[in-house]
Amino acid sequence: MSAARKPKKVEKHKEGTIILTDDSSIKMEVAIDDIKSEGDYKKSPVYIYYDWCKKCGICVSFCPTGALGRKPDGSPYVPHPEKCIHCEMCDRLCPDFAITGAKR
């Protein structure tokens, strides 16, 4: 495996990173500033991995409560975090594994 194909490793477990597996060293970075423009990262009900998102808009159009919205470039964000009911529909319908609304 060439070095170029390996995923970008996050050195420190800073706020906004998710450890994928409990034992692995591979971590995936989440742009926390993009989840919600203002407010607390820990209070946001939905994680979006912008590195994997292809902006297809499925999560936004099938969100049953309208918690998700689309930015001008098409990528999703959370304009109404209080509306999220953790139904995980965005989880299941995302073709890119780029969003999770699971309860933490």
Binding site: R5, D51, W52, K54, C56, R92, P95, D96
Partner: peptide, 14 residues
């Protein structure tokens, strides 16, 4: 290489 090769909105990922 992630994200995967499929087009945006393709159901294969689902």
């Amino acid at each position: 290489n992630f994200p995967h090769v499929w087009c945006p909105g393709c159901s294969n990922g689902i």
